[in-house]
């Protein structure tokens, strides 16, 4: 069912349709996929807007990508996650369209669609088989919400091109099923090919194999990340630290750079 009345922003809370400053960046359209149980779509749309781009809501029942230049699959509990996190969402028409575009050959020289899956979105991408591995319950078995230090290990993706290899950032982590697992062969392959994009720093919060917080597909356009960069984009409402040291209370904005990186990559491409 195509329904154009589906909006990502909350008119009750904010007007997310403000004019962005840099018109070149503003022309970059970033789709934000929403399932019925998605929770962080407003945050993801806000992050895209604060980075200067234009967020475009994509409803899971549709299959029209609306000419977006990139897609974010945000966090939440897409379908209640009662079977396995992301399992049912992965079969939605919109995810079929995203998967096709992310794997496209780009015959006319166009590169495949950049996709970022955050938290539950990462789980959806693994269930869609765009990314290897899977997530199981945290080793301590509890939901954990905390500010998390990460090392950016690969800058060979559009989402991380603006970082220095090994640079550290701080973004919120919040999940119950965040323990990344994959078989030994896959892990070895990910490590050898430099496809571990983010690794937990300052302690592994959930038992993830090799401390992996985020991975990329072989081409680097699809990235999954367990912690939440979209919650570290605005001073006053983010974590209280950053990769480069302490900041004023709740004023860490390291996450914004992931969205900026994408926009600048797309503009300069």
């Amino acid at each position: 069912m195509a329904d154009s009345s589906v909006t990502l922003e909350t008119p009750l809370i904010a007007d997310l349709g403000q004019e962005a400053a840099d018109s070149r960046l503003a022309r970059v359209r970033v789709g934000v996929v929403a399932f019925p149980g998605t929770l962080d779509e407003r945050d993801a749309a806000r992050a895209v807007r604060l980075a200067g781009g234009t967020p475009v809501p994509l409803w899971y029942k549709d299959s029209d990508l609306q000419d977006v230049d990139a897609v974010v699959v945000p966090g939440g509990f897409s379908y209640g996650d009662y079977l396995r996190a992301g399992a049912i969402a992965a079969k939605a028409p919109m995810m079929t369209a995203v998967a096709r575009a992310a794997q496209s050959r780009g015959t006319s020289g166009s590169s495949p669609l950049p996709v970022l899956g955050i938290c539950n979105g990462f789980q959806v991408l693994t269930e869609t088989h765009l990314l290897p591995g899977s997530m199981i319950k945290n080793d301590h078995l509890k939901f954990l919400c905390r500010d998390q230090r990460l090392a950016v290990e690969s800058t060979a993706t559009p989402w991380t091109a603006a970082f220095e290899p090994g640079e550290e950032i701080v973004v919120p982590l919040k999940n119950q099923d965040g323990q990344y697992v994959a078989d030994e062969g896959t892990l070895a392959e990910l490590e050898a090919e430099g496809r571990v994009v983010f690794r937990y720093a300052g302690g592994n919060p959930n038992g993830s194999r090799n401390g992996i917080a985020g991975v990329a597909n072989a081409r680097g356009n699809v990235v999954g990340l367990m912690p939440h960069p979209e919650h570290a984009v605005e001073p006053g409402f983010g974590p209280s630290s950053s990769g480069s040291g302490p900041v004023a209370m709740r004023s860490g904005t390291d996450g914004l750079r992931i969205f900026s990186s994408l926009l600048h990559q797309l503009v300069s491409a």
Binding site: Y79, G80, Y82, L83, I88, K91
Partner: peptide, 24 residues
């Protein structure tokens, strides 16, 4: 059983229509 309910709703989406209910 919210789990079973969610799965029961999804089965027809992948073309499996033969089951009246699911419990997990």
């Amino acid at each position: 059983d919210p789990q079973g309910k969610a799965i029961a709703r999804e089965l027809p989406q992948i073309g499996i229509d033969g089951f009246a209910g699911v419990r997990q």
